[in-house]
Design a protein around this nucleic acid. Structure first.
Lengths: 209, 209, 209, 209
DNA sequence: TATGAATGAGAGTTCATTCAT
DNA sequence: GATGAATGAACTCTCATTCAT
């Protein structure tokens, strides 16, 4: 569990990506932040390295997330607990420290970018991300569907849009947190409010009384 | 109400921004899409023109949105109707045609970028955006607060996080729509589902029974 | 002797060339100064118009100068009077008003540029300038040579370098005048000093006691 | 005293500037002449690089010149010897080899340009040039004044215009040399004539018998 | 004539990538 | 492995030139 140069680079990139935006982040800034020479980055990542780093950040996050989700879910029975568990894992992962909040910002900001790039490059990594992502969405949609069939959840909305609402709500509220942490902007709420809000959103919006 | 070259350029840019991402959109692509020469863009926008165009798209949208909101709101009394009205105006503006959906994608994707760029350039336009934006948030937060005080809305969450949840939910669901329209991805819901879902989100998450 | 648009353009160009430098002078600045549309310039000058205008300024000056010189010289006998006459004509032409000083600056600054450009374009105008110029130099060198042969002038220096010294001295002193007129720089002398200095330079440097 | 890439670039630029004129000199031509990639120039000079290179050529020359002048002058007593020494240093510096002649052409041609550009950019370098220049002029004017007071020099002309004449004469005669070296134009005199002429100009124009 | 919106070739600049050390 | 000077493709921007009105 030694901290490697590769980790240094990934963490440095996460920071710089978050602060400057992925596209305005320059390789030399990442190298400087990681205390390595620019050229060394090419020993650990494929060309184009910025994209590879970004995808690596995604993969690390999703693999980790999915693993935790699947482990937890398999131990739970009813849809309500499962969904709550997922929301909690998400909050925990994205808020646990400052780097996590930066990572959340990068991931949130880059989803459109990762989806949009058609290039054949890094096909394998893209496939991993896509499949990890689909796997999670499928799990969530399935839980919602089951909850609806069991009469626990309102069934007048499609699982897909419920899931999209939930994810959007969490993502944007975490983005506000990023503004607070990195730019000292007053946003009017704190980490704890997100978790509490998420639970209430789930209870009221989804669960029948 | 004649269609000007400036409009051509703005619409072309919206399209290209949406399809390629703002940063990967090249000026010559915008010019080609607008059927004008690259150089002409510099007659209508300030340097750097891509940024100016992006800010112009923002301003057009927010000014239009805020004007509609204020007009509608002044005619309504109770917080519930006001909030529903705002959500409807938002959906209508962002979904009314394909270009609107592209615009929604561009705006959603670029908010972090517009916020993050500190540069002194285009300070005036940035200020317009910031103030238009703050005005809307203040209006919404005020409505929520009033609703809470009148006992119509749950008052166990801060207005700021409620508003963030609502906005995030709408934004991400519209982003899904963009994927459907521009990339033929199956997302599992349609325009109508967003509006319906928004209303139900509002009713259940916010309004006391 | 009506003032034509062509003259307006030439005078405007002289002014802008002098103030900004020929290369930094933009066509639209000249057009604005001349109160004409940019496109109109193409009715009066050949492409590339900036070069044509510059050459026209040269030709106007040299033709005028040479005509005056030849007229005056033919009426004089001894080399001393002839050379003095030329120096006076030069001073009078270059200092007679503010525009003349600007013209002097433009011509002085552009000689290397006009000489250096190899392009085949405007061959005719270049030839005019070159031949007018050579004609003048030949006249001067001839006068100096005659003066040397008659024992009036020192004959220990070649006519060519004497002429070069004289021209350089006059040119740079007039350039100082331009700085004074257009930029309010204190240069320590005035128009009258140039004429007086020129005469003394001639008397002492060239003429035997 | 190793020859660096920076020197390569400066020398290449001097050559290209002289042959094409500063404004028609393209960066890729300089890079090619220096045998480096265009981008490398940006490692050694500030933007805009062509201006920075030009100013650097100026500074190198003036600092070198002034240092030699001050060293030499402090060892001499009478105004005549001092002025002769300065003229000789100038000739030696500007004529010592082909590159020096090119440098002389570039400097002579660019003085108006360097003076005229008001831009705030490179303020420091401009200040260096201005102050080095003023220092030299002050030294020369002071020597002339002393010579006049001691009754060695004619005192019927202002030191400022005498200095301007001397400088103009030297500059234009060296420009002729550039035409000879770089374009094979017959100018009618040679390097040695300049030095000889300069001395005689000084003796006759300035010194009382 | 006279205009100025529109054009597009060509310039300066950026920065991911390479590779000798 | 580690470095960072050197590379050059590709971008944004400029402005002389054109041409429909």
């Amino acid at each position: 569990m030694e901290k490697t140069k590769q980790d240094d680079i990934l963490n440095a990139a996460t920071l710089v990506f978050a602060k400057k935006g992925v596209n305005d982040a320059k390789l030399y800034q990442i190298a400087e932040e990681a205390n390595v020479a620019v050229g060394l980055i090419y020993s650990y990542f494929e060309k184009p390295v910025k994209l590879d780093i970004l995808l690596s950040i995604f993969i690390d996050f999703w693999k980790n997330f999915n693993a935790l989700v699947e482990e937890k879910i398999s131990m739970l029975e009813d849809p309500k607990s499962k969904l709550i568990a997922i929301l909690d894992i998400l909050s925990d992962l994205l808020i646990k420290d400052e780097l996590a909040i930066y990572r959340a910002k990068v991931i949130g900001e880059s989803i459109p970018y990762v989806i949009i790039k058609k290039s054949e490059k890094m096909k394998e990594k893209r496939n991993i991300i896509t499949s990890e992502n689909r796997r999670l969405l499928a799990i969530i949609d399935e839980i919602i569907k089951t909850g609806q069939e069991k009469g626990l959840f309102y069934d007048d909305l499609k699982p897909s849009i419920i899931r999209q609402f939930l994810y959007g709500a969490v993502e944007l509220s975490i983005y506000g947190l990023f503004l607070k942490v990195s730019r000292d902007e007053p946003i009017g709420y704190e980490e704890a409010d997100i978790k509490e809000g998420t639970h209430k959103l789930f209870e009221r919006f989804l669960c029948k009384a």
